[in-house]
Design a protein around this nucleic acid. Structure first.
Lengths: 248, 248
DNA sequence: TTAATAGTGTCTCTAAGACATTATACA
DNA sequence: TGTATAATGTCTTAGAGACACTATTAA
């Protein structure tokens, strides 16, 4: 990539520009809990508070927004090939005392064992925090609490009609582990037989011939994620989650 | 709103900033067709091509992104109280030859009779264009064709599990007109009795006592949109559209 | 043998879809 | 009367959920 500074025609620079950031909600599952990666801020504003990982878009080196998000994700976790989806864009005068800012928020799903947290780059500490309901226990910097809430809601909604949950698992997993991911995130027990019927009909996973997970019980078939044949699966009927269901 | 220029602490201005725009995909229904509002560009680049209405965010006067979008919507159509939802944010080096730009795209639904198109402000012509499949017939400026396509897909997806279609209708409408909106957008015939069952169960519309639409046939009950009791309705089971259905 | 989890089968219930039937206006 | 559209009813079918039952390993 080359710098673009002065070689372009003018014509768009009539207004003062907002600052554009990229923030990422990085989810994983550990200790049977949904966790999010947060960073302790070393500078004001909100010094000492936790915040979502993120940073300014670098117009000299980032080709586009997704590349900026991918860069931030890799800087924090070291993972290169995981699920990353744009969540929503937050922008306004009252988000940051320093400027009128725009944050393009992404959410990412990573398998815990793929992550290598970078130890304290620029005095910033990164830690996994458990999600309780729609939030973490700590207060967050800026408007990151509602952003996190939106991400949790999006994740829960998408579990219902996509297969993104596989990105929280290692390459090989059992159907029970897959179902457990759903139960942890939705905070509801699921029916075993209908879960398995749905999964096998949707063809989102494939059994690995002859490979079993052993233990002090009946061995379980290991499965692998089916590389997306089309774009994403389609459930002809949605799960009606226990305790919710119906309209409301 | 006050200007914010020099009174703020610095600390975010280390990088060159992209230009931030707001673009809106404004849908309506006319002549039994889904239409989108497009503007003929009077200046380069893409002079003479059609583009989505939009413009730069004004950090001095716009409180936030949604206000900027609402401002653009009103400037073009005169409508003040219609459905507006953030669609997606497009940003990169190759979107506009003049700068690294970010477009926060919104989509809006308006009822045709509420719209008063502004006659040629700054030599820009605004016209409704029919949507054929996933696009309009004309080539569009910038990356506005894929943006439009994303908006159409989002609209179609949301018809299935929300009540946003009512915003394309006048205040009072019959169930047949409501169903017709679905059929126009989805480009599929729907089953009358199950459509009515769904609508009445979801309680998204209310009959207006004694008010009927007359004609040379049996009069039809007029309905009004039920102001959102909760947030939006929930269909326990999705419509399986004819000719599609099943997975894939 | 028991404990523990894997995996399957049966039955019910809900809502969509096909299709037919009745209702009510005007010409 | 005929025509056109509104509105409802019946039957079938797909798939979720409850729940029971069988299977297979290690200790």
């Amino acid at each position: 990539m080359t710098a673009i500074k002065d070689s372009r025609p003018a014509g768009l620079a009539h207004y003062k520009k907002p600052t554009v950031m990229v923030d990422i909600v990085i989810f994983t599952i550990a200790d049977d809990t949904l966790k999010v990666l947060l960073i302790k801020r070393g500078i004001p504003p909100f010094k000492g508070h936790y915040a979502l990982p993120g940073g300014a878009v670098r117009v000299d080196t980032d080709m586009n927004l997704e590349a900026a998000a991918q860069r931030e994700l890799e800087e924090e976790t070291g993972v290169e090939n995981n699920y990353l989806e744009q969540l929503y864009t937050y922008g306004g005068i009252d988000r940051d005392p320093r400027d009128w800012t725009v944050s393009v928020a992404y959410f990412a799903l990573v398998a815990k064992q793929d992550v290598q947290l970078k130890a304290g780059t620029d005095a910033a500490e990164a830690h996994w925090h458990s999600i309780q309901g729609n939030r973490v226990e700590l207060p967050l910097a800026f408007d990151h609490a509602p952003i996190l809430q939106d991400a949790i809601e999006r994740l829960r909604a998408k579990l219902d009609y996509t297969d993104i949950a596989v990105h929280l698992l290692p390459e090989e997993f059992t159907l029970s582990e897959f179902q457990r991911v759903y139960e942890i995130i939705m905070q509801e027990k699921l029916n075993k037989s209908s879960f398995r019927k749905r999964v096998s009909q949707a063809e989102i996973v494939q059994p690995i011939a002859g490979k079993m997970r052993t233990g002090s019980n009946r061995p379980a078939q290991l499965y692998r994620f089916t590389e997306n044949k089309t774009d994403r699966m389609f459930f002809p009927r949605s799960i009606v989650w226990a305790e919710r269901g119906k309209h409301e």
